[in-house]
Structure formats: C-alpha cells, structure tokens
Design a protein around this nucleic acid. Structure first.
Lengths: 342, 342
DNA sequence: CCCGTAGGCGTTAGCGGTAACATAGCGATA
DNA sequence: TATCGCTATGTTACCGCTAACGCCTACGGG
C-alpha cells in the first residue's frame, strides 16, 4: 500500500536531484529557491529532475542552515466562535503574498495553555508572533521579550504592549454603547455575558459600560452569566430567565452577538416590543445577524482589519516591524433594536 | 525596546545551558527531553540553568538531527463555517496527550491551493497528514503516496482512499434524508445549496437524495444556488425567491444548516405552516439550531468523532496507522420541520 | 580480588541544507 | 596578449541538535 518499492527507498535529498541532473547540490538549491544566477538551461534540467523524482525540499534542514524560517506564530483563544476565524482570514490574506506562513495555536482562554503553546511555537523559531490580548503570564511575557522577533498583540489596546499592538479599545467600545443607550432614553439596564474569567476584553467592555452608567448616576439593574453550550440557545434562555425575574428592565446589553441574537429571538417570539419597550445590543458585528428580520444593534470589532494590520506589521510591508501601535475605531451599528435618540 | 543588551546577544543554544550548568550538551539534551539516565542532582542543575537563561529548545535543529518531528498536517477547506473547527477540536483533544501537534492549512475548496498547502506542509516532514476529502489533484495524490507517512482522509468515505479514511457516506446521508421525506408524504421537493464546484460532499449528498427521488418516480421540482455572503441571510433570500417562483412546493432540502436556518426564519416570519404545508431539512447538526424556537431537521455529520478517530489512527493509539477505514453513521435529527411519517 | 554489569555522562559524526567564498570560462578592453 | 569583470557553478564550513557509541565509576557475587 505504501507504494512502489523503488520509490519508498529512503527520503529524497538535494543530492538525489543533483545526481539526476548532473549539477552540484548548491546549484539545485539555487534553482529551487530562485536565488542567485543560474543559466536557463541548467534551471530547466534541475526542475525537470526534481519534478520527475517528486522531490519535496526539507525546510527543517533549510531553516537550520539559513537561520530563517517563514513561519508566523498566531496564538488565539478559540476557534469556536466566529470571531477569530475572521481575524485569521485577514492575516492569511496579507501573508499570502509575502512568503510567510501562519501557524495557529489555540489556548482556550487559559493563560497556562497560552504559555505552553507559545513555548512550543517559539521552539520552531518563527519570524514573528501574533498573539491575542495583552495579558500573559510572566513567563510568556519573558519569552516574547527575549525571542528577538517582532511581536504583535492584537484585539485590544487597553494595556501595556510588549512590542506592537493592533486593536480597539474595548473599554471605549463599552462606553460608546452605553452613551448611545442612555441617549435613547433607556434607564433600567441589564447585562448578560459569558462566565469567562480570562476574557479580559469582555470585562473591559463591561467596565467602560458601567463607568458611563455610573457617571449618569445609574448602575446595572441585574445580570446573568453562562458558560458552555450553544450561545444562541443560552442567550434565549438567559433572556427569558432575566426578564421573568425583572420584567421592568428596558434594555439588555449582551457581551457578544451570539447570545444577543438568542435574546432577540426570544423577544420576537414572546411578542415583546423591541425597541420600544425593550432595547437590545450585542458586540462583534457577526455576519450571522444579517439573516434576522430585526437586526441587532452591535459594534463591529474590526476583526478582519485587525488581522490585516498585524500581518502587515510583521511582513514589514508598511514601515517598522517593532513598536507600532494601531488603534482602530469600532463602528456602532444601530440595527433596529435601539430606538431613536431623544 | 528589544530589551537588555546582555540578553539580546545571540540566540541561546544547548551550549549556553551546558556551560551554565557545568555538564555536556548531551546531558542537557537528555534532561530537556526526559530521555536516558540522568541523576536527579544533575537534572535539577540543568533545569534551573535552563529556566534562568530562558532557554527555548530549537526544534529545527532537533528535528534535523533526530529525523523526527512531532507535527501533524491538517488540511481543510475552510474555517468560516462551523463544521471544521469542530473537527479540529476532536483532533486536538486526542493529539494533546500524544506529544503530537496539529498544524492547520486552509484550501478554500481549491484543489490547486490544496496542492500548494500540502507541498508546504510536507516540506516540514510531519509525522502524519489529515486531509479533508478524497478528491485531490494527481500531484497531491503522488505527494501523499510518496511521503511515507500515515495519511488519513476525512469526512467522506465515498471513493478510493490513499491510505486510511474516516467519515460518513454523504451519498447515503442524502438517501436517508430523502427516504424520510418521502415517508412523511412530501412530494414536490426543492433544493437549495451552495455554488461550490469543489464541494464533492455536498454533491454526493444531492446525488444520493435525487437517486431516491428517482426510484420513487420523482425529481427535484426546482433548485437555487448561491455563493458568498452570510449563509443565514442567503438562506432567507433564496427561500423567499424560490417560494415566490414555486409556491406549490411542499419540501425544501438545504445543503447545509446555515442556509436551512435562514429558510426556517423566513418561513416562520411569513407565517408558513411548517411542517404541515412545507417541510424543511438541512445538513450538519450545527449547535446553532438549538437556539431556534422550531428546530430544523438535520443530519449530524459526526464531525467531532471524525476528528477524534483520525487523530487516533495517526497516534497509533488504537492499532495500525495505515490502511484503516472507519465509516461512521450519521444520525437523523427530525426536529420539528418534518411532519410524522404516514 | 577480579570481573561483569549498569548507571551516568562525554565524544563523535552526521542530519540536509545554505552563506560565503572560491573558481572556471569567456568576451571586452586596453 | 594580458588584464579585467562578469556570469555560472563548485567547495567548504558550519547551523544546533541527537543517535550511537564509549568511557568511567561504583558495586556485588564468585
């Protein structure tokens, strides 16, 4: 099953190609990397031989010899919500024509896991690191600092960066949404979010949000948290539970669009007057929302753009590869779940 | 910004740790890999020194020397629908305690792209490959065959495998759904799907589906295709368009749950009697559906289990690492959008 | 007291490439 | 014709680590 006995011998090396084409290994190497001067005739011979043998270069050896590796480590908390895949798309798009290749590691929002993943990734000597968030264990920070390669922390700008940073201020995002809600005249506000001790961004948003409420002499009337399971379903259930407990609330702020959408479905099904009697808002600007009859108010986190910018920094396309700081401005999308300002 | 001048010198090697701890490089290597006999005292000294210096091993060099690399290439078409992340989760879960590490490559459903990604991945000499689907370019097949490592093709079993294969029969899945629909008495059936020439699995499902219709003397009454954009929204729009054109249809079969959910939303909003006057069904069993008031009929693609099984084969945990064939049986979830069998 | 044995550690020789330098060939130039 | 300079190619010395082997010491039984 493993194929023709002649082929499976041992693994092919440059030497095999060199013998097959009658030139030195060095010349083969030059042809395969498009580097240095090689006559068209020789190039042709080498390429033919390589293809005929089915030679695949060995980047392990190449990387060791050249002390350069075309990998970029990308470390993110999760793949299961829609948000990070879109960041990845932005990264890939830019990296695709730079010869750099992203390698993804997932931490499940666990700092120790992030540390392990980082250690593992750095041991491949990538030429850059993109990592979500600004909060890391001490060991992680030390590794990142000592790695001697460009580091880009993404998603968030509320904190001290190790090297470069690209993101939005989640605190500001929370403030902006709160201001909008108050301007629309809502006053009895509830919050629904995930039970994620390590989602600092969600926490920052809530902080900014409650700060504005406090300035207006208000506070969150009630809150509800969940963890695990289908976010849409949880949003629906939590909303039902919260409203059963506090039917007097006039606004619900959700920590993400998925549970917000679940809440919206509940309200629509229950015949609640949205946004007249009850307003709703989420966070992220996920595409999913476009499919709903009533569009949820949200705030775009510029995920795609964050990915692009981070990749551009690493690729050196747009200036320096160190110490860059880019704060993007999230766009408020009012949808149809916040009534007009008064 | 790049840190203390003493630290940034050059990159740390085993030699540095060896000098710092007063033993040979080889002993350091043994300690760091937990291999061979080392006295507890020495081990301690070495570990302390390594930690103090912030040493991170160089797997490039290690891999070259040992001719072994703990990477598994995972090649999938997309990250933007919910299906592959769940496969990845299954893979990670199993690989996590084997010392193997998945490296993900995305092809966007393009065979040439798959070929490039594969070439790139093989050049890192991984110890195994997991690749979605059974359809590859000739060059890709050749590379996979000659790589001399375990290959697992996943998701689909309708075709000839290169080495091992784990998945479901999409043709059978289509047949089962069609039988269920006919048994419930639906007769005028429409299909809505993605315009994806390279999604062979969706095509196989449709083939199985129409084959059953044909055996009953029926055919698809109408169909609608889309590409790009928010699947939920597209599902809603396509459903509206199709029903406007053919109000006489009594069943809509969707190629995936996302557009199916969009269609369901349309029907609910339009006050259509589901499943009495119109039945609906999708495919995949995405968790999202749990959040809807009316649950869409679907068929679970065993994504998580597929990932697990594939990883188990590569890890050698459960027998041979070559030539294994595992066909899983998708479970039909009737939800509330197919009426009772007659 | 000698030798076998095993644990603990060092030495050597690559792994498969590439950077850097060396060299051969050859037409142009003085 | 000797010299130069350029292009096309070869040679050499590693890159950082580990497999394989070898040496030394301690120890116990015959």
């Amino acid at each position: 099953m493993t194929s023709d006995p002649r082929l499976e011998r041992r693994t092919l090396t440059l030497r095999d190609v060199s013998e097959a084409s009658g030139v030195s290994e060095m010349t083969v190497s030059r042809v395969l990397r498009n580097r240095g001067d090689v006559s068209p005739a020789t190039r042709e011979r080498v390429l033919t031989a390589a293809k005929r043998l089915g030679y695949v270069p060995n980047k392990i050896a190449g990387g060791l010899a050249s002390q350069r590796v075309n990998l970029v480590a990308v470390i993110i908390p999760s793949l299961s919500n829609m948000v990070f895949p879109e960041v990845l798309a932005g990264i890939s798009e830019v990296l695709d024509d730079t010869g750099l290749q992203p390698v993804v590691g997932v931490t499940n929002y666990q700092p120790e896991r992030e540390e392990q993943v980082l250690y593992e990734m750095l041991s491949w000597r990538p030429s850059g690191v993109i990592v979500a968030g600004l909060e890391h264990t001490d060991a992680s920070r030390a590794m990142l600092k000592n790695a001697g390669i460009p580091i880009v922390e993404i998603m968030d700008v509320d904190g001290e960066a190790i090297d470069s940073v690209v993101g939005i201020s989640h605190r500001r995002a929370g403030r902006v949404m709160a201001e909008e809600i108050l301007a629309a005249g809502y006053r009895r506000i509830g919050f629904l979010g995930t039970q994620m001790p390590h989602d600092h961004r969600a926490r920052n948003r809530l902080e900014g949000f409650t700060a504005v409420l406090a300035e207006a002499g208000l506070k969150l009337e009630d809150q509800e948290y969940y963890s695990g399971g289908s976010a849409l379903l949880k949003g629906r259930e939590m909303t039902a539970a919260l409203l059963a407990r506090r039917p007097d609330l006039d606004f619900l702020y959700y920590s993400n669009d998925m549970i917000g959408a679940g809440g919206l479905l509940h309200c629509l099904d229950a015949g609640i007057d949205v946004p007249g009697k009850l307003g709703l808002a989420g966070f992220n600007g996920v595409e999913l929302l476009d499919g709903f009859r009533v569009k949820l108010a949200t705030m775009d986190a510029c995920r795609w753009e964050v990915g692009r910018k981070a990749a551009e920094i690493l690729s050196g396309k747009s200036g320096p590869t160190h110490g860059v700081r880019i704060e993007l401005t999230p766009r408020l999308e009012r949808g149809q779940t916040i009534r007009a300002r008064r």
